[in-house]
Amino acid sequence: MTTPALQVDGLSKSFPVGRGLLRGATTMVHALQPLSLEVRPGETLGIVGESGCGKTTLARMLVGLSQPSTGTILIDGKPLDTSDRRVSSQQIQYVFQDPISSLNPRKTIRQTMETPLRILFGMDAAARTARIHEVFEAVNLRPEFLDRYPHEFSGGQAQRIGIARALLARPKIIVLDEPVSALDVSVQAQVLNLLADLKTQYGLTYLFISHDLAVIEAVSDRIAVLYFGTLVEIGAADRIFARPSHPYTRLLARSAPVVGRPLAPQDTAGAELPDPLNPPPGCAFAQRCPKVSQLCRTKVPQLQETGETQRAACHHPDQT
């Protein structure tokens, strides 16, 4: 078996809240419960979940923008060390959700693109220009864009620039945090296709985060479903929504608007997430779940095999 491109073990994040003037933090909010997963080289792992499920927290820890509370991140079998960006930037890169906001409004694109090359790799001017032109060609942008400012670009163009910036360091893994959700559908398709081309061209591994089930399904090999900071189900992209094991995955799949399917009857329990300051003792989905039992309200379910490729954290999973 090959070494996974990315291996995450028991990764979790909690934030202190209710900090008093003199006392330390009184309560911890668990944004992400301990989570373990593996991404094979060349794979696209989709991560899907609704707002507040912890997907952006996970992404920010993977690229070192925030420190994990517990757990380890291994890239190609080696621990991720974000204190030395020269190494870590060649291991993993990040593409932001809001393409315009991720570019400094007062810098030209050339200035923005040159910074990492200069700081991380100490390239001279000629080498920088050559590398930037190479990357710009890869994302189908014209070199004259380099001397413009971010506000002169449409969302789609700005996101190409964001992708180009991530490619500069020749990373092996790219974390894409909702890369197309700010874009119009026609532009969204352009960017998704570009990402697919780049992946084959450079042999990249993607972690693709989105709230859009159809987009995730169209780009991923495997999909992980998060709910309230917990990994509730993970499995092959072509099966997980067609034959979900976890009731939450089923609810998600049924809720996605699909042409020709009648509007689903409402789940009257409401769609409120549990209070993060006062999480339920058992399964976080219990209060919305149609299959809830006494066990669910008291014991947190662990991930277990529910099919050949699927695992779900549920006491009463559907076998696929």
């Binding site: 398709a189 399904e217 169209a218 090999d221 699909v258």
Partner: peptide, 15 residues
């Protein structure tokens, strides 16, 4: 160019 759930992994017809 809008992906639809259940269509599986595919190339999208972008405009």
């Amino acid at each position: 160019c809008v992906p639809e759930l259940g269509g599986g992994r595919r190339q999208l017809a972008a405009i």
